[in-house]
């Protein structure tokens, strides 16, 4: 499960007056924090242990220099970027349309975007393999290129709940109907409205969805393994099976990327709020 948050709630009211801290609160927080932090320290320490008797970055140089790492990472990177583009192209118009033209369709669209959370990824992948195998009406698993397209569609499906919710939240902060009518009365067509009015207004929200999608796709394992594509996820599993220290280095890299994506999401959220504040 993947979740993005921008913690917008006000600071804890209980702490406002600053009475003495509850000792149990310290215990709960301390135990939890220890559990969260020790594995991080563990993986960092372990990743530095490759050279005997001293700490070194050997595991990192070994991983980063591995051509297979470079190929699979680049593959997943491109897949993530294309997934974002497809996701935006599909979700932004749909989210706008159900707000102004087909409001009765909105529950249906919302339900559909929630489905990927309900149906486990492995089931979706299984469906693809059975439905789009070489003897089906749409033999997408036939060639490497078409399998890549199928994988892209799968990634877009996984990203759908997060993409839709991010963009829907963004649209909630602007008056879609009034903006549309104003643009139309000035003679703008739908492409202009979408590209020059809506997209800039929800840009921060789109970015949030994009970074989350990026972090999902980059580490994804199940779909890529089922469709047998040379992605980063299956590479990590393979490396875990036959190396000792490199997996820890990979984990550190993956954690840094996740952290980076979440940081960028918070930045994007701030960007979104600013555009709203500037207008009202």
């Amino acid at each position: 499960m993947t979740v993005a948050t921008t913690d917008t709630a006000a600071a804890a009211p209980a702490a406002a007056r600053g009475p003495r801290a509850n000792p149990w609160a310290w215990v709960a927080f301390g135990v939890g924090a220890l559990y969260f932090l020790v594995p991080l320290v563990g993986m960092i320490e372990f990743s530095l242990r490759k050279r005997r008797g001293t700490y070194s970055f050997d595991a990192y140089t070994s991983v980063l220099g591995d051509p297979q790492f470079q190929q699979t990472f680049a593959f997943s990177l491109v897949m993530a970027l294309v997934t974002i583009v497809i996701g935006v192209l599909i979700v932004v118009p749909a989210a706008i349309w159900v707000r102004i033209r087909l409001p009765w369709l909105r529950p249906v669209v919302e339900f559909l975007t929630l489905l990927p959370l309900v149906i486990p990824v492995i089931v979706i992948g299984f469906g693809y393999i059975r439905l789009y195998n070489t003897s089906s009406f749409l033999p997408m698993t036939g060639t490497a290129a078409s399998t890549n397209v199928l994988l892209l569609m799968g990634y877009t499906t996984l990203a759908l709940p997060y993409m839709y919710r991010a963009i829907d939240t963004g649209l909630r902060t602007i008056d879609v109907r009034t903006l549309t009518e104003a643009a139309q009365s000035l003679g703008a067509g739908w492409t202009t409205i979408l590209a020059r009015i809506m997209l800039p207004n929800v840009f921060g929200a789109v970015l949030s969805g994009a970074f989350l999608t990026f972090s999902i796709v980059l580490g994804e394992y199940v779909l890529a393994a089922l469709l047998d594509r040379p992605a980063f996820g299956p590479y990590m599993v393979a490396l875990g099976g036959n190396r000792a220290y490199e997996p820890a280095a990979l984990a550190v890299i993956a954690f840094a990327i996740t952290w980076g994506c979440m940081g960028l999401i918070q930045l994007a959220g701030r960007f979104q709020k600013h555009t709203r504040a500037a207008r009202t």
């Binding site: 594995p39 394992y221 875990g240 990979l250 984990a251 993956a254």
Partner: peptide, 10 residues
């Protein structure tokens, strides 16, 4: 996958 690696390392 990376989470599993972190715990193996710990």
């Amino acid at each position: 996958v990376p989470l599993a690696f972190a715990f193996i390392a710990t």
